[in-house]
Design a protein around this nucleic acid. Structure first.
Lengths: 339, 339
DNA sequence: TTGAAAGCGCTAACAG
DNA sequence: CTGTTAGCGCTTTCAA
């Protein structure tokens, strides 16, 4: 393997010192003529500066650590894509780590990324390890939370108003005449917020909240399908189910299909996230759209401001979600399932 | 920001030289007692070696560059997840770049990753820039192609037998009585192979191949939907459509739905990849399963063997796909659309 | 404007 | 077994 050209090679070829080459790399004041010589030498040698070496002297690595629960989840994958796009636009690379909501993995990956000296972190969608987060904050390492937030911690975050989302979903269902509305949630903050919104809507409309109508899944399709099935088997089964994300909603539909229930006639189902899944499912899913693109750009922008030291004030950005009504919800028809 | 402890700090605290510390880090022969002292010092200081510094002296960065077409594609996202898992198991991180099949982005990202000295590359699913690939190979940088291959180049690759997949799909459709079978493809090698298989099956069954029944999309849902629509508008419209991936198949279904065609009664549709989409769609999609997990582990393992210099013989691994028949295909009923 | 030289944190001979 | 020391490729004073 042939050795890559270094700054010394360029310097020699251009007949200048390495300091001068360094100056042109970082385009500082250099004589026009010398600059040209250096540029020419760089081109001829096909020289590419080593990020490692320059980072070692204190400069940035231009890479961002992106921790997320599971890349295989379409909503998460789409976030990743948007984050990546913005990061690249700004000149940063992304190293991605799926944590599966596992606090140990979270700690492990952060530790690894620290050794690689990433410039900052985006923690997305359900980062559970508060210790690690606090540590990062204490060490003044740039962090922004995406699609979640820790109200008690001074940390940048970007998310939708999950409470409002939950509220809208429940209101929609109630306006359709549903009263027995179950919820399938995940064990993450955003789900909890959505549930809060759901409860608030019920109360505002004078309906009772039944805690046993709220179940928490481990985020897998299988588990959600099982839970939905159980819900539907109850004597007092719900006429509508609010799934806290589209995958859970799809699982719910699969469960209902197994029991020969028609959607939306026998059961209304609402998802969350407006992923590709919600358009392709049968029937197309009523769901809640998050402004993913904006959220992700903002998150990266916030992070980079902090990395580049341009701002020190922490921000909590909350965007508004939007209910998208498709075919999986309909008016509740009394007696429909009384045969 | 407090300075992170370095090897010098550990050495001083343990009362030994930095060389000794280095030895215990890379666990080489060190006296039991001294080793303990060093370990203790490291723990107390919460010391973490700098990957940058050690990489600068010639060691690995333990990070792999992963170029893929688009993370937002569910099949690609799932590959990414599997690759990531295996990479982490083996102690490597992944930096991910979506190229959108754009040769310039491909070149740009590889160039950036070179500057960061990643140890090797996984190029997935449609890497078009042969120059860049050749360059990598010439520089003896470890590379493995995932879900694609360049038969003419000496490079490791792992993929399914796309030809066989296409052959199986077409055979399935033909056995159902279809004769006018269209194809919606992407402009990538795997699609071309699948088309070859499709053509072979037609020929083997004594059917004519009509090139105008094969259309190529730009991989977006919108474009595929448009193309499918056009196909269905033809006077001599197909009774079955083979979409070269599940997203294209979903788009086809959407297009058919718009024209009030029932699937599979009026039109059979087959996808490829067996993503979550194919299970959740309506009707559930007949599709071809790729052994993603195996492919991805193998790809990483191959790459790491090469990185760690354990093997120099290039391999081309081809796995067998499996047709999964669901509800989107049915026997062709003559006259169905003759009203 | 340009250059000499001292690091950045670690590894790897080479000595002892 | 442990320590000394010369780099790895680049940035950055400080002089010239």
């Amino acid at each position: 393997m042939i050795r890559k050209p270094t700054i010394y090679d360029v310097a020699k070829k251009a007949g200048v010192s390495i300091a001068t080459v360094s100056h042109v790399i970082n385009n500082r004041k250099v004589g026009k003529r010398t600059k040209e010589k250096v540029l020419k030498a760089m081109k001829e040698l096909n020289y590419q500066p080593s990020v490692l070496a320059s980072a070692l002297t204190g400069k940035r690595t231009s890479t961002i650590g992106f921790l997320l629960p599971d890349l295989a989840n379409p909503f998460v994958a789409e976030m990743a894509r948007r984050v990546e796009d913005r990061a690249h636009e700004r000149g940063y690379n992304l190293v991605i780590c799926s944590t599966d909501f596992d606090t140990e993995k979270e700690a492990l990956y952060v530790s690894l990324l620290k050794q690689k000296r990433v410039d900052g972190y985006i923690l997305a969608g359900g980062f559970n390890n508060v210790n690690v987060l606090t540590e990062l904050l204490d060490e003044q390492i740039p962090v922004v939370l995406l699609a979640e937030s820790y109200p008690s911690l001074p940390v940048n975050s970007v998310k939708v108003d999950d409470f409002a989302g939950g509220y809208e979903v429940a209101s929609h269902l109630i306006s359709l005449g549903h009263e027995k509305i179950a919820v399938i949630a995940e064990n993450v903050t955003s789900s909890r917020e959505r549930i809060r919104g759901y409860k608030q809507a019920l109360q505002d409309k004078g309906l009772d909240v039944h805690e046993d109508m709220i179940v928490v899944s481990d985020s897998s399709v299988e588990d959600a399908e099982r839970l939905a099935g159980e819900l539907l088997d109850r004597s007092d089964s719900p006429t509508a189910i609010f799934a806290c994300n589209d995958i859970l909603a799809i699982a719910t539909i699969l469960a209902a299909r197994k029991k020969n229930l028609c959607i939306p006639q026998d059961l209304s189902v609402v998802g969350f996230d407006n992923t590709l899944l919600s358009r392709s499912s049968d029937p197309p899913l009523t769901t809640v759209e998050q402004p993913i693109q904006d959220m992700c750009s903002q998150a990266i922008d916030l992070l980079i401001e902090e990395i580049e030291g341009k701002s020190k004030i922490k921000q909590r950005i909350v965007m508004l979600p939007r209910l998208i009504v498709r075919k999986s919800t309909d008016v509740h028809r009394k007696n429909t399932r009384m045969e």
